[in-house]
């Protein structure tokens, strides 16, 4: 991996992902589970948990990078727009910086929906064999 390398990966917030997240973590806030509540708050339907995207990042780092010897040291994310059930997202990631002294790389990323709107962005610091 080197500075400037870019990656793309497609994700879909399927019912399985959504239900799995609720089953595992138990967040049944009405914004995520009650259609009427979400509409009352101005959304067209229930809003997906933002941290589902953090799960996608975990998958990307662990499974999609060219090497498996990786560990996430820190991760930050800003949620920009709501994500809805069955929405397809494209993750765009770029190696922003390399820290050879501690074998680490900083990756900046954003998720884009099918309307090419950024729904979230963030950074991950990983340890890896550079």
């Amino acid at each position: 991996m080197k500075k400037g390398d870019t990656y793309k990966h497609q994700f879909k917030v399927t019912a399985e992902v959504y239900k799995g997240f609720i089953n595992v973590f138990g967040d049944k806030n009405p914004m995520h589970t009650d259609e009427g509540f979400a509409k009352e708050k101005g959304f067209p339907s229930i809003v997906m948990h933002g941290n589902i995207l953090n799960g996608f990042i975990s998958y990307f780092i662990g499974e999609c990078l060219p090497q498996k010897n990786v560990m996430i040291y820190s991760q930050s994310i800003d949620f920009k727009k709501p994500v809805f059930l069955n929405e397809e997202l494209v993750l765009h990631a770029e190696i922003e910086d390399i820290f050879e002294s501690v074998k680490s790389a900083e990756i900046k990323f954003y998720f884009e929906n099918s309307a090419n709107v950024k729904v979230a962005k963030g950074k991950v610091l990983i340890g890896t064999n550079l």
């Binding site: 820290f99 002294s101 610091l125």
Partner: peptide
């Protein structure tokens, strides 16, 4: 672990 984060922050 924090050693790595410290070095990165200092750099």
């Amino acid at each position: 672990l924090t050693h790595i984060q410290l070095v990165v922050a200092v750099e």
